[in-house]
Each structure stands twice: as structure tokens, then as C-alpha cells.
């Protein structure tokens, strides 16, 4: 009791913390210094490029003759074919996503402990979140049935998105020379920037929630009736029905386009701000000017959009499945 009731040691006259206390990091000053230094470096670089090269345009030959187009990097160049099966960078990214997802999950699953480490905590958080999505939107039976789909959609799309922010030498359409060898250019690419990736997953989800709706409402008539919200009477009924049918099919489009457009636009913005616009207009100073914006967009996309889009896709799947069996 005496120890508990003992008064706290008086602070030292000089105001310095007592020994044993964690020293506050001098973050504010050093951060400000770093920001000022980087801003200064950026300004000096800008002045240098304008001073040396001027405002004039110095386009590369490939740009001038139209060989280089910024959208080319999203083109799926077939690398090789095995019978009717084509292999391109989209396929590589899907395989990479699958391998990384499986390796990560199996690695974590084999090392599960009662006291989780960081990876296990993250995996458990993912598991808890996706099982929560399933439980909150579906009944117990459907939740058990569709949890693997929802969880796999989330982790698979997340990994696909994240590896899309790692520059890899996959741009076989724009090669560069290194000691005489023509090598594919480095680029950031994600499989979801091709419409095929989100479309097939959306079609899968659309098919599944339509099938559940068909089962839950005992056939096509019940299916169509279920699209109409309850309490709608009178001449407005057919109009609402048409809107609801449209809205139902638009789920497929919205689910697809949301993921695809976000990723494609994100990647294009990063590429443009990261230097591509400067290449197109033939001005080094434009590249230098926009480069910080490229970094900021890159961080925004990699940190927020990648996880957010995976989350949205997974939760919308759960909501649509839940809505399919809910009675209006």
C-alpha cells in the first residue's frame, strides 16, 4: 500500500524527463526538415530541367510516330499458346495472385498458434471480417455455404490488386535495351485492369445470387415477383417493376465496372503522373513536375483503393446473396 500511495517523484528542475521514461521522438522538426528538403530538391530539379531543356517539346521517336501509346501497357500480348489456351501477362498475374494467396494462407494456417503473431492476427482479422459479412447478410445455412466464396473473393481480389502495384518486367510491347538485350519494360499491371477479371467474378456472383433467388422464390414467376418491392400498388407498379429489373441486371455491370474502372483508372493515373505524360508531351520538366503527384496517387491506390475495392466486392456479394433469399 505504501508503494502505491507513495507520491510521484518530482520532475527535475530542468524539465527533462526522469530516467527510464521514453524519450519523445524529435518527429515534428525532422519531418518538417525532410519535407522542406524534398520540396527544395523538387524545385531545384524543376528549375534545372526548365533551364537546361526549356519549355520546348522533345518527343521520343516512338511517341512521334505513334508507336508508343499509353494504353498499350494494358494490352494483353500473347506470349505463347498451348492449343487454344493463350498465355499472357494477365494470366501471369492471375496465377501469381493465386500462388501468393495460397502460399500466404496455407503458410499462416500451418502456423496457427493460440497467441497469434502479426501475420496470424491479420489473417484472423480477415477471417473474422469476411465471416461477419456472411453472417450479417445470410442465414446460418447460406452463410456456411457462401462464406468460402466471399472470403476467397476478398483475399483473391486484394492480392491481385496489391501485386498490381509492384513494378514487374511484363510490358513486352515496349521493350528496353540492356547490354544489347531487348527486355520487357517494367510496369505496374493488375489483372483486374482487364475487364475479363472482374466480369467473370461478377458473372459468377450474379449467377449464384440469381440461382438462390430462383430457389427461394420457387421458380421464375416468384423470381420476377420478388424483384418488386412490397407495398407498391396501382399504375406505378409496372414502371417500378421495369426499374427494379434494370437495377437487378445493373448489379452485374456495377459490380464489374466498379472494380475494373477503379483499378484501370488508378493504374493509368499513376503511370501518367509518374512520368508517362511527360513522355507523351516530350517535356522532362512535366515529368518532374508531376512526379510527386504520381507518388501520392500510388500510395493512395496501394494503401486504400486495393483493400477498399476487394472489401466492396466481397460485401456486395454477401448483400446480393442475402437479398436474393430475403422476402420483400
Amino acid at each position: 500500500m505504501s508503494a502505491l500511495a507513495a507520491p510521484a517523484p518530482a520532475s527535475t528542475p530542468g524539465g527533462s524527463p526522469p530516467p527510464g521514461d521514453v524519450q519523445p521522438k524529435p518527429t515534428a522538426n525532422s519531418r518538417r526538415r525532410i519535407i522542406l528538403g524534398l520540396t527544395g530538391f523538387w524545385l531545384v530539379g524543376l528549375i534545372f530541367f526548365i533551364g537546361v531543356l526549356g519549355f520546348g517539346s522533345h518527343k521520343a521517336l516512338d511517341v512521334r510516330n505513334g508507336t508508343f501509346t499509353p494504353t498499350n501497357e494494358f494490352k494483353l500480348d500473347t506470349w505463347f499458346s498451348v492449343g487454344p489456351v493463350n498465355f499472357n501477362k494477365g494470366v501471369l498475374y492471375v496465377i501469381l495472385a493465386a500462388v501468393i494467396t495460397l502460399w500466404l494462407m496455407i503458410y499462416a494456417a500451418r502456423r496457427l498458434k493460440q497467441r497469434p503473431g502479426r501475420l496470424q492476427a491479420a489473417i484472423e482479422m480477415f477471417y473474422g471480417m469476411t465471416s461477419g459479412m456472411a453472417r450479417e447478410n445470410l442465414d446460418t445455412t447460406l452463410s456456411r455455404k457462401y462464406f468460402p466464396l466471399i472470403a476467397t473473393l476478398f483475399i483473391f481480389i486484394l492480392v491481385s490488386n496489391l501485386i498490381g502495384y509492384i513494378p514487374l518486367p511484363v510490358n513486352t510491347l515496349d521493350k528496353f535495351s540492356l547490354f544489347g538485350a531487348r527486355l520487357p519494360s517494367f510496369q505496374i499491371y493488375a489483372a483486374d485492369t482487364n475487364l475479363a477479371f472482374p466480369l467473370i467474378l461478377s458473372l459468377l456472383v450474379f449467377f449464384l445470387f440469381s440461382w438462390e433467388r430462383l430457389k427461394a422464390h420457387h421458380g421464375p414467376i416468384g423470381f420476377l415477383k420478388s424483384l418488386l418491392p412490397s407495398g407498391i400498388e396501382g399504375p406505378i407498379k409496372p414502371m417500378i417493376f421495369v426499374i427494379e429489373v434494370l437495377s437487378y441486371f445493373l448489379r452485374l455491370i456495377s459490380l464489374t465496372v466498379r472494380l475494373w474502372a477503379n483499378l484501370l483508372a488508378g493504374h493509368m493515373l499513376i503511370a501518367f503522373m509518374g512520368g508517362e505524360l511527360g513522355v507523351l508531351v516530350g517535356s522532362a520538366w512535366v515529368q518532374w513536375l508531376l512526379f510527386p503527384a504520381g507518388i501520392i496517387i500510388y500510395l493512395f491506390e496501394a494503401v486504400l483503393i486495393a483493400a477498399l475495392q476487394a472489401f466492396i466486392f466481397a460485401i456486395l456479394t454477401a448483400i446480393y446473396l442475402g437479398d436474393a433469399v430475403a422476402s420483400h
Binding site: G90, V94, A196, L199
Partner: peptide
């Protein structure tokens, strides 16, 4: 090609996603 889905990739995605799931 940006707005046209690559059918081959769709099949790949479906198969690989199925395996992963």
C-alpha cells in the same frame, strides 16, 4: 481492347479462382 474482355483470361480467372476457393 480496354473495354473488351479477354475471353481466354476470363476462363483462366474462373478456373484459378475455383482452384483457390
Amino acid at each position: 481492347f480496354l473495354i473488351l474482355p479477354n475471353i481466354g483470361l476470363m476462363v483462366w480467372v474462373l478456373v484459378i479462382f475455383g482452384i483457390v476457393m
